[in-house]
């Protein structure tokens, strides 16, 4: 799903209006975020073609397009996830990744040696292989929406191995990253048109509610604004 062009123009305009400030201010993370081109359809840098098809389909099932508005694809969650793969998070640099790696009760947390980008690389290949074996040779992205949902529900609590990745861990990462993409600042490639925040009524970077501490249950009246100044 493509966003209507006026919103998109506004989005780019908002970024350009402040880019020099952020670059000047030496905010490297944001400078990198701003350096990503906004012209034309997004070309993934980490995911290959098959992985990208899987990711787009899976994100959309987790956060679907409906009467409330665009789903994860329209909001750019797959783009967000692709960009996150080349960050300290994606490379597993925020985690303790020294061995030995042993299996342990689930409540003691993640114990794989794989960083997020490898969870996707191995997990998506495993997921597509699993789906082809159970669905007449079709890959996940080729299934009907209802079938995709059913597969994700199998994965959600499933212990089956998708490559080296237990299915529930692939699902957990997909769900977390999709929702991060939908609800983070648009700087990172998702939440396009601030539609994620608009749905919830979160006003974004306004961050000043001196007059709204207690209005006896009235709804906060102002729409969201992004860090770069985009409004919706």
């Amino acid at each position: 799903m493509k966003m209507p062009s006026p919103t998109r123009r506004h989005f780019i305009g908002g970024l350009l209006g402040s880019a020099s400030f952020w670059l000047y201010s030496d905010h490297k993370v944001w400078a990198d975020a701003l350096a990503v081109g906004n012209a034309g359809p997004y070309a993934p840098r980490y995911f290959n073609k098959e992985e990208w098809r899987f990711l787009n389909a899976a994100c959309e099932r987790i956060y679907p397009t409906d009467a409330h508005g665009p789903g994860a694809r329209g909001l750019g969650a797959p783009e967000f996830i692709d960009r996150q793969m080349d960050t300290a998070y994606g490379r597993g640099e925020l985690w303790y990744m020294s061995g030995p790696f042993v299996s342990a009760p689930a409540n003691l947390g993640y114990q794989l040696s794989l960083p997020p980008r490898e969870v996707y690389r191995q997990g998506i290949a495993g997921a597509d292989a699993y789906v082809r074996a159970h669905h007449d040779g079709r890959s996940f992205a080729d299934l009907e929406a209802a079938e995709q949902t059913a597969v994700l529900k199998e994965f959600e609590h499933g212990e089956m191995a998708l490559g080296a990745v237990p299915a529930h861990l692939l699902f957990e990462q997909l769900r977390q990253n999709t929702l991060e993409g939908v609800f983070s600042d648009p700087l990172y490639g998702g939440n396009k048109g601030l539609a994620g925040w608009t749905l919830l009524g979160f006003p974004g970077a306004r961050a000043d509610f001196m007059d709204w501490v207690n209005q006896e249950g009235a709804a906060y009246p102002f729409g969201p604004v992004s860090i770069s100044g985009e409004t919706a």
Binding site: Y96, A104, P105, Q111
Partner: peptide, 18 residues
């Protein structure tokens, strides 16, 4: 640097990785 965690003394503790 992190810690390792186990629930009971008969378990092998594993790292708090995330």
């Amino acid at each position: 640097s992190t810690v390792t965690i186990r629930n009971t003394t008969d378990q092998v503790a594993v790292p708090y990785r995330r």
